[in-house]
Design a protein around this nucleic acid. Structure first.
Length: 562
RNA sequence: CGGGACGUAGCACAGCUUGGUAGUGCACUACCUUGGGGUGGUAGGGGUCGCGCGUUCAAAUCGCGUCGUUCCGACCA
């Protein structure tokens, strides 16, 4: 690409409505442009990078034996109704009607269609296993798009689906995808962790996430200092060590006016948080339940959902809480409550603790389980915290933030049962097909890579992803010899199979240097005053050193650095 | 969905309080200048002031509505 005659621009000033380093740099370097909230255009340079990411993934998918297909985006709504996911995905789905009033949706994920495709092929166990994948645009009406390309409403996803006759087969298919994912992310130069995760809307047996480590990541990764334990916060088990109970003290009412938060209680009444509990009223599949955890713990809604096998878990509204406790919000408690009470394991070893009194402006001190109220179930329902004990090895837990760039699921027979995908085995009996699904967001990978690979001057692309491997900068376009040498190098490098960008614009040297740094081309060849000695300068983007290279050695030198 | 802010040239913003000729910087065009880390200058082009209704002799400016963007929270595959 020769810049003088190409669509290429950069912005000198920061863009206002980008809230992430990657979003800002990608927009400023002219790679992408925001079109509406959470919807972006990919411009020539950005699209080249996206294509390189796709090429890596495609290569690994094909090596793993998967076959590429392309499903539609426009899908009859009934497809998702049959699988039971229309309601589950709810308002995250873009929906529309055709001219006859028939409801359609824009596909947010494609399990259903792949299952239908599989159904037109699978008859017998002899047809299994196989794996299909696609790169296709997904539409998800996110309530809050954020962080440039990281949380968007329209994005390309590589999704793959494996079909097996049994769980043993799924294990094999899953492992192939898992390895292909690791290889893909390694080739992209991403720093990532693989964590256990919630199966969420997908359902199924196992979910593992590939998380790019980044400050702006929206997922909390739970990691161990000593072993390789790695889990998403939402599913990370907690270790609870039971401790002996103290002698029960008499239950007393405590007048606690103007106390809105736990911290006020600690400050005003000198009660340690380890002696306090909080009671929250949750609607679990619309049924109110009182959930208790120690005050300094957080309730984990995913664990609640699993514990109850529920579809919906939501905090009760203030009105509901006030009706049920007959007190203002902030004073709910277990004593005298008619609600079902579920408490975290940690509550079991607590004695003489504080609870809400179900009475505005009052708490109760020295409450005790068994004497003052009954817990119908103790369970692990809190979030693990940094410094906690590792559930795997007993080491110490720390957190990192992660951007979910890939996800692998063992779905089992959930979808094949719901939609009737079956095969005949050798004994002539029907069985549901066992499925796995595997997703990567190339755009999110792109953004995550920029988050991890940039400096004060701009993007620093890993070699495998850079839109161009080499930038040839002609310093003074008024000097014919420089222009000719630049063009000659461009032709030679191109002929050698190297992606070259020629900056032949009539701009100041500083402008070109800054632009090439911003865009993040890994290698820069400067054609300037050293040309008089038959030499050009070679500089790596991530290195300050400048090397003089003879004109006729340039192609070989660049090849050796590749 | 709840709360806040903002919509004026491609980008970033001023002007609005107190209504009266639409501005600045960057970018863009031409010429001169300069030519190794975002040269300096001169002259230009580009805007139904998000949209609608209202108040007024007169609205970017005041009022109501609406759409969009954004921030915090909720939600989130």
């Amino acid at each position: 690409m020769k810049l003088k005659s190409s669509y290429f621009f950069t912005l000198r000033e920061n863009v206002k409505d980008e809230d992430s380093a990657s979003g800002n740099l990608l927009v400023r370097s002219g790679m992408i442009k925001k079109n509406s909230s959470g919807v972006y255009m990919y411009l020539p340079l950005g699209y080249r990078v996206l294509k390189k990411i796709e090429a890596i993934i495609r290569d690994e998918m094909n090596k793993a034996g998967a076959q590429e297909v392309l499903m539609p985006s426009l899908i009859p709504e009934e497809v998702y109704e049959q699988s039971g996911r229309r309601a589950l995905i709810g308002s995250s789905m873009f929906s529309l009607k055709d001219r006859f009033g028939k409801p359609f949706v824009l596909g947010p994920t494609h399990e259903e269609l792949f299952l239908m495709a599989a159904a037109s092929y699978v008859k017998s166990y002899k047809d299994l296993p196989f794996n299909l994948y696609q790169f296709q645009t997904k539409f998800r009406d996110e309530p809050r798009p954020r962080f440039g390309l990281i949380r968007v409403r329209e994005f390309i996803m590589k999704d793959a689906y494996s079909f097996d006759k049994d769980l043993a087969g799924l294990d094999v298919s899953y492992q192939k995808m898992f390895d292909a994912y690791k290889a893909s992310f390694d080739r992209m130069g991403l720093d990532y962790k693989i964590v256990r995760a919630d199966t969420g809307v997908m359902g199924g047996l196992l979910s593992e996430e590939f998380q790019a480590v980044s400050e702006i990541g929206e997922d909390k990764l739970v990691l161990c200092d000593t072993c390789d334990f790695a889990s998403n916060l939402e599913v990370s088990a907690c270790v609870t060590v039971d401790e002996p109970l103290e002698a029960f003290k008499p239950l007393e009412e405590l007048y606690t006016p103007k106390v809105g938060k736990i911290k006020d209680l600690v400050d005003n009444y000198k009660i340690p948080e380890s002696k306090m509990t909080k009671s929250m009223i949750y609607l679990i599949d619309k049924q109110p339940v009182l959930i208790m955890v120690r005050s300094d713990d957080e309730i984990n809604e995913v664990k609640l959902q699993k514990l109850f096998g529920a579809t919906s878990v939501e905090l009760a509204s203030n009105e509901v809480v006030e009706t049920l406790t007959k007190a203002r919000v902030g004073f709910a408690g277990p004593v005298g409550s008619s609600l079902k009470i579920v408490a975290d394991h940690r509550i079991r070893s607590m004695s003489n603790f504080l609870v809400g009194a179900n009475k505005t402006d009052y708490h109760l001190v020295n409450a005790n389980v068994g004497r003052d109220f009954t817990v119908s179930q103790f369970a692990d329902i809190r979030n693990i915290k940094p410094g906690d004990t590792c559930p795997n090895c007993g080491g110490t837990i720390h957190f990192k933030n992660g951007i979910e760039v890939g996800n692998t699921f063992k779905l089992g027979d959930k979808y094949s049962q719901a939609l009737g995908l079956e095969y005949l085995d050798a004994e002539n009996t029907l069985h549901p097909v066992i499925m796995g699904s595997y997703g990567i967001g190339p755009g999110r990978c792109l953004a995550a890579i920029v988050e991890q690979h940039h400096d004060e001057f701009g993007i620093v692309w890993p070699k495998a992803l850079a839109p161009f491997q080499v930038a040839v900068v002609v310093i003074n376009t008024k000097i014919e010899a420089q222009v000719d040498a630049g063009n000659a190098l461009y032709d030679q490098l191109t002929a050698a199979g190297i992606d070259v960008l020629l900056d032949d614009r009539d701009e100041r040297a500083g402008v070109k240097f800054n632009d090439m740094d911003l865009v993040g081309i890994p290698l820069r060849i400067t054609v300037g005053k050293t040309l008089e000695n038959g030499q050009v300068e070679l500089k790596a983007r991530n290195d300050k050193a400048i090397h003089l290279v003879d004109l006729h050695d340039v192609v070989n030198t660049v090849k050796s650095l590749r």
